[in-house]
C-alpha cells in the first residue's frame, strides 16, 4: 500500500490526516493570534504587519491556498470518519452511559461545525471584505505610503456588540475543540503514554484557555473602550481633547 492510500483509505491514515491538518491549523491560529494582539500596540504596528503580509503577493496566495486545502482536508476527513462511524453502529443502544469521554470530545462535531461557520463569516468579513459584512475599506498613511487601515477596521468591527459576541463564542468553541483536539493529535500520531498524557491534557487545557483569553481580549478591549479608532479620517473616531487634527477640522467648518 502506498502512503497516499494509507492516508486516505485506512482508518488510522485518515485520523493522521485529521491530526496533521489540525496541527497545521493550530500553528496558523497561534500566529494569527500573535499578529492580532498587535492591536494593543499603536496602529502603525498592526497596519505595517498587514501591509507586509499583503506585500507577499503570490506567496501569500500560496499560503492561503495551503491553509484552505488543510482546512478542506480536515473537514473532508471529519465527514468521512463520521459517516463511517455512524455506519459502524446501524442500530443504537436504547441507553448508553458515558464512562470517561470528556464533554469536549463528545461535541467535536458541533463545535467544529460552528467554528467552520464562523470561519466563513470571518473570512468574508475581514479577508474578502464583502459589502454588508461590516466591511471597512479605509486606508491610512504609513511612513507616507497608503496602506489598508486594519487597525480601524478591527476596532470598528468589534465595536458592534453582536459581531464581538459571535466572535467570542466562536473562539470559545474553537478553544473547546482544541482542548480535546490537541491531546487527540498526540494520541493519533502515536506520541502518547499515560503519564505524559496527564501532563499533556493539562497543557492542552491551559493552552486552550490562554488562546481563548488572548482572542477574547481583543473584542473585549474594544468594547471596553481600551482600544479605540485612532484614524481621524474614520467615522467613529472620538477625538481626545486638544487634538490638532480636530482643531483643524473645526477651524475649516
Amino acid at each position: 500500500m502506498n502512503i497516499l492510500q494509507v492516508l486516505f483509505k485506512t482508518s488510522i491514515g485518515k485520523k493522521v490526516l485529521m491530526a496533521v491538518t489540525g496541527l497545521i491549523m493550530v500553528g496558523f491560529i497561534v500566529g494569527h493570534l500573535i499578529g492580532n494582539l498587535q492591536l494593543f500596540a499603536p496602529p502603525e504596528k498592526i497596519n505595517a504587519y498587514a501591509h507586509f503580509l499583503e506585500g507577499l503577493g503570490p506567496a501569500l496566495w500560496a499560503i492561503r491556498a495551503f491553509l484552505l486545502l488543510t482546512l478542506a482536508l480536515h473537514v473532508w476527513m471529519a465527514i468521512q470518519l463520521t459517516l463511517e462511524n455512524k455506519a459502524a453502529r446501524p442500530k443504537d443502544y436504547t441507553s448508553q452511559q458515558t464512562l470517561r469521554a470528556s464533554y469536549a470530545s463528545r461535541t467535536m462535531r458541533l463545535s467544529g461545525f460552528i467554528v467552520l461557520a464562523f470561519l466563513i463569516y470571518h473570512l468574508l468579513h475581514f479577508t474578502v471584505r464583502i459589502e454588508g459584512f461590516g466591511t471597512y475599506p479605509h486606508t491610512t498613511l504609513l511612513d507616507g505610503t497608503p496602506v489598508r487601515d486594519v487597525h480601524s477596521m478591527m476596532v470598528f468591527g468589534f465595536q458592534n456588540v453582536w459581531i464581538s459576541l459571535f466572535y467570542i463564542i466562536s473562539v470559545g468553541l474553537l478553544s473547546w475543540h482544541l482542548s480535546h483536539g490537541l491531546v487527540s493529535m498526540f494520541q493519533t500520531i502515536g506520541l502518547q503514554s499515560r503519564a505524559w498524557s496527564n501532563f499533556l491534557s493539562k497543557l492542552a487545557v491551559l493552552f486552550s484557555i490562554l488562546y481563548f483569553l488572548g482572542n477574547a481580549a481583543i473584542p473585549g478591549a474594544v468594547l471596553a473602550g481600551v482600544v479605540k479608532i485612532e484614524n481621524p479620517e474614520v467615522a467613529g473616531y472620538v477625538c481626545p481633547a486638544k487634538c490638532a487634527v480636530c482643531e483643524a477640522k473645526k477651524a475649516k467648518t
Binding site: T10, S105, V183
Partner: peptide, 21 residues
C-alpha cells in the same frame, strides 16, 4: 489494521470509552 477496517468497525476518536469499559 486492514482487516479491522474491512470488517466494518468504526474509527477511534480518542475518547477511551473502550478502556473504561
Amino acid at each position: 489494521v486492514a482487516t479491522m477496517d474491512e470488517a466494518g468497525f468504526g474509527n477511534c476518536t480518542n475518547q477511551y470509552e473502550c478502556s473504561a469499559a
